[in-house]
Design a binder for these strands. Structure first.
Length: 271
DNA sequence: ATGACGGCAAAATGCCGA
């Protein structure tokens, strides 16, 4: 049995008490974190250690940042996937003349499962260079995922995190609102569907069907109390791992109250 | 039409998020 969770925490330091409290009561074996928003030397390893979790973290600045916390082993850590694209923040700024490979992907083998904690680029706007970066990033990740399954069709792989894509119309509170925005475009949905075609499946959706079932709610405009959210955080499991899924939930309670992340944790149980 | 809220830092405004 393995209980695996993923959570975009929107700063692990400002959310630390909430994250540790949640771990203490949620019986989680492996937690993938996104948007830790800190460098490695700023990560609060001690609090996770005290709670019984080893942590592998990747963070180079105040943006992005991904981690895996595990109480069932943490082996073969890999930061970034092969060929992970970088983003040129400002081609005219010599400080960032070289594209920066963001801290958006980290992997570790935990309890026999190869877990990838992923923070897919936002895309910002369809006309923004960040949108092409997002599509390229997903395509290069897919190249890797396809190869992993070709190399070993029985591989137990979990691609988890903030995908920044709403794969179906049920996954946004308003199709009209997102019509001219990122997250619902045909290109992004095709990029997501490519993983499904390759054999990875959303193991949460059968246990948390929509419409109106979300993992993210904007802090502004009373989006949470108005139930106006998006389903953009996913656990995609390889065929061998998906066959082991027995339960899943989106912990909407954790979005409540002061000091909440704008994302809820997502939990899957494997037999 | 725009901003909202929230986090971070070479911080008191700008960048980023979705």
């Amino acid at each position: 049995m393995l209980r695996l969770a993923t959570w975009n925490v929107n700063s692990v330091r400002s959310r630390l008490d909430r994250v540790i409290d949640w771990l203490d009561r949620s019986d989680i074996d492996v937690l993938a974190l996104q948007e830790t928003k800190c460098r490695d030397d700023q990560f609060p390893y001690d609090r996770f250690d005290a709670a019984g979790y080893e942590v592998a973290h990747a963070g180079i600045n105040q943006w992005n940042g991904v981690a895996i916390a595990s109480r069932v082993g943490l082996e073969d850590v890999q930061i970034a996937f092969d060929g992970q694209p970088g983003f040129d923040r400002d081609a005219a700024d010599t400080l960032f003349a070289e594209p920066v490979v963001d801290s958006r992907a980290i992997a570790a083998t935990c309890g026999g499962v190869r877990v990838w904690s992923l923070y897919v680029p936002n895309g910002r706007a369809v006309t923004d260079p960040h949108f092409e970066y997002k599509l390229d990033w997903l395509a290069r990740l897919h190249d890797n995922a396809e190869k992993w399954l070709v190399d070993n069709p029985a591989a137990q792989i979990a691609l988890v995190g903030d995908w920044n894509i709403a794969p179906t119309d049920d996954d946004v509170w308003s199709v009209e609102y997102f019509a001219d925005k990122t997250h619902t475009t045909p290109q992004e949905r095709a990029a997501f569907d490519a993983f499904v075609t390759t054999g990875f499946s959303d193991v949460v959706r059968p246990y948390a069907p929509g419409p109106g079932v979300f993992t993210y709610w904007d802090y502004t405009r009373l989006r949470f109390p108005r139930k106006e959210g998006m389903k953009i955080d996913f656990v995609l499991a390889s065929p061998a791992l998906a066959a082991r899924a027995t339960a899943a939930l989106i912990d909407r309670e954790e979005r409540k109250g002061t000091g909440a992340s704008d994302h809820a944790p997502v939990v899957v149980e494997f037999e």
